[in-house]
Amino acid sequence: MGNLFVVSLAVADLVVAVYPYPLVLISIFNNGWNLGHLHCQISGFLMGLSVIGSIFNITGIAINRYCYICHSLKYDKLYSNRNSLCCVFLIWMLTLVAIVPNLHTGTLQYDPRIYSCTFTQSVSSAYTIAVVVFHFLVPMTVVIFCYLRIWILVLRVRRRVKPDSKPKMKPQDFRNFVTMFVVFVLFAICWAPLNLIGLAVASDPASMVPRIPEWLFVASYYMAYFNSCLNAIIYGLLNQNFRKEYRRIIVSLCTARMFSVCRSHDAADRVKCKPSPLVTNKNLVKVDCV
């Protein structure tokens, strides 16, 4: 049931592509936000939902991989179908609980520097610190602990230390672990600058906001949200099953396009070569195409 967490993470990444990102593009083309307050709040809310959902899903994946690799004998009992569904449901409930305060604190505002409605770090110092600590630092600490324990076990298995005490890791399990580990590393790299800026701003908003260069904030913001596009690339590069599915989808699309073009050409040829009757001396004469 580990794939269920991957699907949940993919949904979190997809949320921003469905609604907020198109509105950001409209805002860029119009050089400002003219879509109204409601769309601004919905866009900012869904962006936050995607971010916090991604963090919590990555944490859930790390715990799942830790249990699967380091406590394999208990894994089937811990992650039964019902328990896995409950875990995913809990992840999204915690995500909603984490995002709802934005609607009451007024932190979802339009930022002209990034042409989008998003979490404004300078509105509430206490809430910004809580977001960074409980929605980034604590989950990342849990993920680091899980992956460190997994890497220790991997190194022991590779070096055949105590071979009788630990089961050997299957190559497929190792590849899946590496894939999710890369997902976590890139997530941490992409989101760390924005969260560090948030801590700096929350410490003293009045003095720190003017001191942070605009280019640094914009670069950290877009680097953070670009992370949602990276996961699909990572899956395709590091996971054989994903590569096969990508190849199958691309081949299917190309085949369907070629079939559609061939059918349109055939239809045009049939119309061009269709016999047309001419009336000559009250007799019908068929004229074929040349």
Score class of each variant (00 low, 15 high):
2 G>K: 11
5 F>C: 06
6 V>C: 01
6 V>N: 05
7 V>K: 12
7 V>F: 15
8 S>F: 02
9 L>C: 08
10 A>G: 12
11 V>R: 10
11 V>E: 10
14 L>C: 12
18 V>D: 08
19 Y>R: 04
22 P>A: 01
23 L>T: 03
26 I>P: 03
28 I>A: 14
33 W>S: 02
36 G>T: 11
39 H>K: 12
40 C>M: 11
42 I>C: 01
43 S>W: 04
44 G>N: 09
44 G>L: 01
48 G>H: 08
49 L>N: 13
49 L>Y: 14
51 V>E: 06
52 I>F: 13
52 I>Y: 10
58 I>T: 09
58 I>S: 03
59 T>C: 11
60 G>W: 05
61 I>F: 08
62 A>W: 05
64 N>Q: 12
67 C>V: 06
69 I>P: 02
69 I>Q: 06
74 K>Q: 07
74 K>M: 10
78 L>F: 08
78 L>Y: 10
80 S>P: 11
84 S>Q: 11
86 C>T: 14
88 V>F: 09
89 F>M: 13
89 F>C: 12
90 L>D: 06
90 L>S: 14
90 L>R: 08
92 W>C: 02
93 M>G: 03
93 M>D: 00
95 T>Y: 02
95 T>K: 00
100 V>N: 13
101 P>H: 11
105 T>D: 09
107 T>S: 05
108 L>H: 01
109 Q>T: 06
115 Y>I: 02
118 T>M: 01
118 T>Q: 02
119 F>V: 04
124 S>E: 11
125 S>F: 09
131 V>G: 07
133 V>R: 11
134 F>Q: 07
135 H>C: 13
136 F>A: 00
137 L>I: 15
139 P>G: 00
140 M>P: 07
142 V>C: 02
143 V>M: 10
143 V>F: 06
144 I>Y: 13
144 I>C: 07
144 I>E: 14
146 C>T: 01
149 R>Y: 14
151 W>N: 12
153 L>P: 00
153 L>G: 04
158 R>F: 10
164 D>C: 08
165 S>D: 09
174 F>G: 04
174 F>N: 11
179 T>K: 03
189 I>Y: 07
198 G>V: 07
199 L>R: 05
200 A>Q: 12
208 M>K: 06
210 P>V: 03
213 P>N: 00
214 E>D: 15
216 L>E: 04
218 V>K: 12
219 A>P: 03
219 A>R: 05
220 S>Q: 05
221 Y>D: 07
222 Y>W: 15
223 M>N: 15
223 M>V: 14
224 A>Q: 10
227 N>H: 14
231 N>M: 01
232 A>G: 04
234 I>Q: 00
239 N>L: 06
247 R>L: 03
247 R>I: 00
249 I>S: 08
249 I>F: 12
250 I>R: 15
256 A>K: 09
259 F>C: 09
260 S>P: 03
260 S>M: 08
263 R>H: 10
265 H>M: 04
265 H>A: 01
266 D>E: 10
270 R>E: 04
275 P>Q: 05
276 S>K: 15
276 S>N: 02
276 S>L: 02
279 V>S: 11
280 T>S: 10
281 N>M: 12
287 V>K: 15
288 D>P: 03
289 C>E: 02
